[in-house]
């Protein structure tokens, strides 16, 4: 009886499975899709981070765009030079030129500079703190809870002693995950050669802005007057705004800034190694 059950089960299941298998084999031969084998090969050469920094969703789609000639290998932001050369050599195409895009954190109001109105004890994420207002007096500034740091897939960010995020420019690939994560839009992506930035997003009038932060833009318009190119800096909503279309703005504009919120060529030499050795032994 038991043996009979086993045989019946095995035969019936095997029969069903065999019938379905034959059906599938037949369907497969009719519906076969030929894919370009190079797509998988190129995908293997790419970093496989699927960060989306190149503008297409995922490394597989980028590989397809490469093969179709819609992209050049250097469009990949996560590739180093070796990897770009490998891909270019594999496909026999030009590597293209690469402008490095880097993330810039546009707030300098850390714990030492910004006024703390209250202690924030809610959900420990920037998004949560932003919904409730956070504890800082400045409602435009960095909340200091590091959502950008945790969004970074490349280990290119950390929080410093002052409660502000730091970007390691040796690691940053400019994928924009941190810019997306910041609820206050303090992180922007800019090409490597841009050096002049206004490190403040406070749109309040001078006195009010100065009350909540030592390094706030108080809209005094001195930088607008000092800028070597006419229209290089404008004052929009009580905030100095740099015209990034004009190349190579120099350091003239920063000379008379009373709060030092506009800075030229800082931080771009911060590397992970240097940051870690400076912070060794301290809780970050």
């Amino acid at each position: 009886m038991v043996l009979e059950t086993v045989i019946v089960s095995a035969v019936s299941m095997g029969g069903i499975a065999a019938a379905l298998a034959i059906f599938l084999i037949f369907a497969d031969s009719k519906l076969k899709v030929v894919t370009d084998p190079r797509i998988d090969a190129v995908t293997d050469l790419l970093p496989g981070t699927n960060c989306g920094g190149c503008g297409v969703p995922g490394c597989n789609a980028f590989a397809e765009a490469l093969i179709k000639g819609k992209a050049t290998p250097s469009d990949c932001v996560a590739c180093d030079d070796d990897c770009v050369t490998d891909v270019a050599a594999f496909l026999g195409v030009e590597a293209g030129t690469k402008t490095r895009i880097l993330a810039v954190v546009l707030c300098k109001g850390g714990n030492a500079e910004a006024v703390q109105n209250a202690t924030y004890r809610g959900e420990m994420s920037c998004t949560g703190a932003d919904t409730g207002g956070g504890g800082k007096g400045c409602v435009y500034g960095c909340l200091g809870l590091g959502e950008c740091v945790s969004s970074c897939d490349f280990g290119a960010m950390a929080m410093d002693d002052n409660g502000l995020p730091v970007v390691f420019y040796d690691k940053c690939v400019g994928c924009g995950a941190c810019a997306e994560a910041c609820p206050r839009d303090l992180i922007e992506l800019h090409p490597e050669d841009k050096k002049l930035f206004v490190y403040c997003k406070n749109k309040d009038k001078g006195p009010k802005a100065k009350k909540v932060c030592k390094v706030a833009c108080i809209a005094c318009t001195l930088c607008v007057k000092d800028c070597e190119v006419e229209g290089g800096i404008t004052m929009v909503n009580n905030l100095a705004e740099i015209n990034f279309d004009i190349d190579a703005l120099g350091a003239d504009a920063i000379k008379r800034c009373p709060t030092k919120c506009i800075l030229f060529d800082v931080e771009k030499d911060v590397t992970k190694e240097r940051f870690e050795s400076a912070h060794r032994g301290r809780a970050v």
């Binding site: 369907a27 076969k32 899709v33």
Partner: peptide
């Protein structure tokens, strides 16, 4: 089977 068909 549906997957093959959709892919095609």
């Amino acid at each position: 089977f549906v997957e093959m068909y959709v892919k095609k």
